[in-house]
């Protein structure tokens, strides 16, 4: 009888190992453990045995019963899980099809470029300043050491509203307005739209600039170089070489144009850089003592520097846009491209 019991266990375990669906598991459980099941019958038959054998076999039978019950429970979970996995495997979507997207707009590329620059200059200690687009001749020219009849006015073809009122040709007037109200130290950047009477592939009658001004005691040309080198390395990459070469602006002395190594050819020479390997990206210089006269700063005590960058020029170089007018045509295919 003990063999019979052990055979039943072995057979049942082997049956359980072969079960694959929930219904078969239930049927097998009933067949073995049900009211009329094989093991139940066997347990019932024990009462006819002598007490000493009955106790030993009874204990074995109960152990086996507990084991089989546990096995049936386990296989039931397993079978159910497998069944669910099979069902899921058939419920398939094409994951390559597009999802339900939100419509997303985009900032104009020029504003993004300006924003990036502003953030770099903020990190370098500059504060923002803004001023009017329609500006007095005084702020746009006179107070920047560009008197009437000065040939330097030819450098910028100006839009006029009257003899005294112009569309600003640069954001430098903001600097004078700030200096009028604030004693040094002054560290500002002035982003904004500026206007010159010119329109072709590389000139738009309206364009954007970021200008900067730093006035304090003991500021030198070497500091100007330091700040602009930091900016260029941060914006264009630490490996980009740059050079300062003498130039002329009426409001700075000495004045310097800053060229960066051509971002297109890496300096070996190409069409964009006219084979020079260099690209002019900003104008700068030490503040001319003359402009301090207009804001009552002591030129002996305070030195400083100023610089100006054309946003379009930088964007054109950075993204390879050949025609400045593209920025202002606002073709959505362009606006959403970069």
């Amino acid at each position: 009888m003990e063999d019979q019991l052990r055979n039943l266990r072995t057979e049942t375990l082997s049956l359980i190992g072969r079960l694959t669906d929930e219904k078969a598991v239930e049927e097998a459980r009933v067949k073995v453990l049900g009211r009329k099941g094989d093991l139940t019958q066997f347990l019932r038959g024990l009462k006819d045995l002598p007490p000493d054998r009955r106790a030993a076999l009874g204990q074995l039978a109960n152990t086996i019963k507990a084991e089989l019950e546990e096995e049936f429970d386990r296989i039931l979970v397993e079978v159910r899980r497998n069944a669910e996995m099979r069902a899921l495997a058939e419920d398939v979507v094409d994951v390559t099809l597009p999802g339900r997207r939100m419509m997303l707009g985009r900032r104009h590329i020029l504003h993004r470029v300006a924003q990036d620059m502003i953030e770099i200059f903020r990190d370098l200690g500059f504060q923002l300043a803004e001023g009017p687009d329609v500006e007095l001749d005084y702020y746009n020219f006179e107070a920047l050491n560009i008197p009437r009849d000065h040939p330097a006015r030819d450098m910028q073809d100006t839009f006029y509203f009257s003899d005294n009122v112009v569309l600003r040709t640069h954001t430098s007037p903001v600097e004078t307005r700030v200096m009028e109200k604030q004693r040094p130290p002054v560290r500002i950047i002035c982003p904004g739209k500026v206007y010159r009477r010119d329109a072709d592939m590389t000139h738009s009658p309206m364009f954007m600039q970021v200008e900067g001004l730093w006035v304090d005691e003991g500021i030198s040309f070497a500091d100007l170089k330091g700040v602009l080198v930091a900016f260029v390395h941060e914006y264009f990459g630490a490996g980009v070489d740059l050079r300062f070469r003498p130039s002329f602006f009426p409001f700075t002395e000495p004045s310097a144009e800053v060229d960066i190594q051509c971002v297109i050819c890496g300096g070996s020479g190409c069409r964009t850089c006219s084979n020079t390997g260099w690209l002019e990206i900003l104008g700068s210089g030490m503040n001319d003592p003359e402009i301090y006269r207009f804001v009552d700063y002591d030129p002996e005590r305070y030195t400083g520097f100023a610089f100006g960058i054309g946003i379009e020029r930088v964007a054109m170089l950075k993204y390879g846009v050949p025609d400045i007018r593209t920025f202002y045509e606002n073709d959505v295919r362009f606006l959403t491209q970069l």
């Binding site: 687009d133 569309l167 606002n330 606006l335």
Partner: peptide, 13 residues
Amino acid sequence: NAGGYVEAVTMSF
């Protein structure tokens, strides 16, 4: 932008 609007920059005149 979050509403799907794309920014344009047009001439001041």
